[in-house]
Design a protein around this nucleic acid. Structure first.
Ligand code: FES
Ligand code: FES
Lengths: 144, 144
DNA sequence: AAATTAAAAGAGTTTAATATCTTTTAATGG
DNA sequence: CCATTAAAAGATATTAAACTCTTTTAATTT
C-alpha cells in the first residue's frame, strides 16, 4: 500500500505531533524508538519532511523536531504525496501507462470506488486528529 | 498496491482466459505482447502460476498456456495470494508487526473498511468475468 | 527416430528500496 | 569563543524486486 519510508514518515509525524503538544522538541533517537523504526533511515526521511516544511526542526542542545499548530493540519495525504508521490492518485492498478476513463483496464471500474474511498480517507485525516487517539491509550505506534 | 509481478500475472491470466474461449493455447510471446509485459519475466511468473495449477500448459509445437472451464473460476484474490502472498490480508498499513484489534495502529479503524472492500472485490471477481468486458472492446490490457 | 517447437528450469544482471555510517553545519550553554 | 549537542548532508552498504539470458525438458510433427 505505502512504501516503508512512507510508513515511517506517518508514524514519525504522529509521534512528533503527540509530543509537540507542550512545545517539546523530539530527537531522532526518541522518534526511532517510539515508532520502532531504523534510526538513520528515519532521520533521512525527517530531513525530507523538514525540507518540505511538513515539520520543523532546530539543531543543537535541546533541539529536535516539532510541530506548530498549523503543522497539525497536515493530512495523511500530504505525507503520502511528499514521500511516495502521487502514484496512488494516478497509477493504474494493473500498470497501464495511465489510468483513464478513455483507456480503462478491466478492473478500472471495480477499483475506482476503492481508490476514491482511500483518497478521501487520507485527505480527511490530519496528523492532529491522532493526538486524542494516542492519548486514549487504545492505539499504538509500535508493538512488543 | 500490487507488485509488478502480480500486475503481470493478472493481465496474463485475463489475456489467456480471453484466448482460451476456443480451446486455443497461447504462447508466452503472445502473452507478453498482448499485455505489454517483459517476455522472460512474465514467463517466470507463468511457470509459478502453472505449478500452482491456476493455469495449464503444454510444451512443444502448438503448445502454450490455456484455461479450462474450471480455471475461469479463479478469483483475482487467488492470483494475488499466489504471487504477493497474504500481505494485503494481514499486514498493518503502518507496518506494525501485526494488524490486530488488540494492538491497533492509529489508522487501523479508518483502513479497516477500505481493506474489507478491497478484499471483497478481489474475491468476488473471477478471471472469467473479464471475458465479456474485453469482448465489448471498451477495456484494455495495454495502451499505446 | 530426428528435427522442431515451446515451456520449465536455472543462473545471472540491473535497478530501486531500504538501511547504515561518517562528516559537516548550526544552534546552545558555559 | 569553546565545548557540546543534534540535525543536515553525504557517502556507502545491503537487500529485494524486477528483468534478462542460457540450458534443459517435454511435447509434436515429419
Ligand atoms: S486503467 Fe487500470 S485502474 Fe484505471
Ligand atoms: S494495526 Fe495498523 S492497520 Fe491494523
Amino acid at each position: 500500500m505505502f512504501s516503508k519510508s512512507c510508513e515511517y514518515a506517518i508514524k514519525a509525524m504522529i509521534f512528533i505531533a503527540q509530543k509537540s503538544k507542550d512545545e517539546a522538541r523530539v530527537g531522532i533517537k526518541e522518534i526511532a524508538k517510539g515508532t520502532d523504526s531504523p534510526e538513520h533511515f528515519v532521520a533521512k526521511i525527517m530531513q525530507d519532511l523538514s525540507r518540505r516544511k511538513l515539520v520543523h526542526s532546530v539543531k543543537g542542545p535541546n533541539g529536535g523536531f516539532y510541530m506548530d499548530h498549523f503543522d497539525l493540519k497536515t493530512s495523511l495525504a500530504d505525507i503520502v504525496k511528499a514521500i511516495d508521490g502521487d502514484s496512488i492518485y494516478k497509477d493504474c492498478v494493473l500498470g497501464l501507462k495511465a489510468c483513464s476513463e478513455k483507456n480503462p483496464c478491466p478492473v478500472h471500474n471495480e477499483f475506482k470506488e476503492i481508490k476514491k474511498n482511500l483518497i478521501m480517507m487520507i485527505e480527511d485525516n490530519t496528523i492532529g486528529d491522532f493526538n486524542e487517539k494516542l492519548d486514549s491509550g487504545k492505539f499504538f505506534l509500535r508493538n512488543k
